[in-house]
């Protein structure tokens, strides 16, 4: 910290510290911590609510008994005694009513209880959706890696710089076009009356309900996020020294061995980034399932989260669901870093 003040002087350092803490604490750390906190409690009936309700029942019984006393008192002949009895009954009744009100208040006022129960709210159906979301996202990552590796390698190592620049431009354009538009294109293609079913019809097949079956979500997801694999791979492969490949070939290595022993080890950071990005975007995608299913197919986990917050308005369970998703992504990130032996510094480039 003293180093900071020495480097920039007091006024400037103060500004730097101010903006940094707004960002780190106010926009990143505090919201995450509050979300974790929110997932760990819920409002419950207070402890001993059962005894309180027994007590309340007892008090109501007393009131019933007093109604009898009252009719006895009203039947009395002595006017002054009758007035005194009635006044005493009124006072007693008021006291009991006040006590009932107080007890009912404490019985029905929920208290904040810390619990892990919000995570347990995920029944078998939601757990299955959670598992499906993760499995499908892993598949998106794997498909993207297999499809993009040859492209990235070819552009980085086999093409002339001029051709490579043109190809890169052709990759940047679909990458930069808004995600929603790329998804919508597939909604049109896979629609009941869309070109995909038209083609199927031409070869004599029945139309397939792509959108209603959830297949459309997967197809559009691969399309929407596949380019997040190309660029990280290209960036690392561009730095690969062609002489290494050449040397391996001269030493008689097969194409397969060249890739396995030279190219892929070099590409580790790019593979890690590409897999992390495609997995995270898929698992956390709200746009793709929202547009591709039109509410007809089984939901994606992100839609469950959205519903907890904005439709069922159970924020505690919603926070627990969100946290579960975040936990899976975090595990995936660290798993990839471990597996490919790369650090966070290699990843964020």
């Amino acid at each position: 910290m003293t180093k900071l003040f020495r480097a920039f002087g007091v006024p400037l350092s103060t500004v730097i510290l101010m903006f940094s803490s707004i960002w780190i604490l106010g926009l990143i750390a505090a919201p995450q911590l509050i979300m974790i906190e929110q997932s760990l409690w819920r409002m419950e009936r207070p402890e001993g609510a059962a005894e309180i309700s027994v007590q309340i029942d007892g008090l109501y019984n007393q009131l019933d008994v007093m109604a009898l006393d009252r009719s006895t008192a009203e039947a009395g002949t002595d006017a002054t005694k009758r007035a005194a009895d009635l006044a005493a009954l009124d006072a007693k009744e008021a006291a009991i009513n006040a006590e009932i009100a107080a007890l009912e208040e404490s019985e029905s006022t929920p208290v904040k209880v810390y619990t892990l129960a919000n995570f347990g709210q995920m029944g078998a159906a939601h757990l299955a959706i959670f598992a499906k979301t993760i499995a499908a996202s892993l598949a998106v990552s794997a498909i993207a890696l297999v499809v993009c590796y040859p492209i990235a390698y070819a552009v980085a190592k086999l093409e002339t710089p001029r051709t490579a620049a043109v190809i890169m431009l052709a990759l940047v354009i679909p990458y930069a076009i808004n995600e929603l538009l790329r998804i919508f294109a597939w909604q049109m293609i896979l629609n009941q009356n869309g070109p995909a079913n038209l083609l199927l019809g031409l070869v004599g097949l029945d139309p397939v309900p792509f959108l209603e079956s959830g297949t459309g979500v997967f197809v559009a997801m691969v399309y929407a996020y596949i380019l997040f694999m190309v660029f990280p791979l290209y960036n690392v492969l561009e730095t690969l020294d062609g002489n290494q490949v050449e040397a391996a070939r001269d030493l008689g290595a097969s194409t397969w061995n060249i890739h396995r022993r030279v190219v892929i080890p070099h590409a580790r950071p790019g593979i890690a980034v590409g897999c992390i990005m495609t997995f995270m975007l898929s698992a956390g995608s709200y746009a793709v399932p929202y547009i591709m299913t039109r509410g007809t197919a089984a939901p994606w986990f992100t839609q469950l989260i959205y519903n907890r917050f904005f439709e069922a308005t159970n924020w505690n369970v919603g926070a627990a669901y969100a946290l579960s998703l975040l936990a899976v992504c975090t595990v995936f990130i660290f798993g990839m870093m471990r597996l490919l032996k790369v650090s966070l510094k290699d990843i964020a480039k």
């Binding site: 919201p31 509050i34 995270m280 956390g284 917050f309 969100a322 992504c329 975090t330």
Partner: peptide
């Protein structure tokens, strides 16, 4: 490295 929806929702909760 955090899904966008989580950044969004945690900000709203906060």
């Amino acid at each position: 490295l955090t899904p966008g929806i989580i950044i969004g929702i945690s900000t709203v909760i906060f």
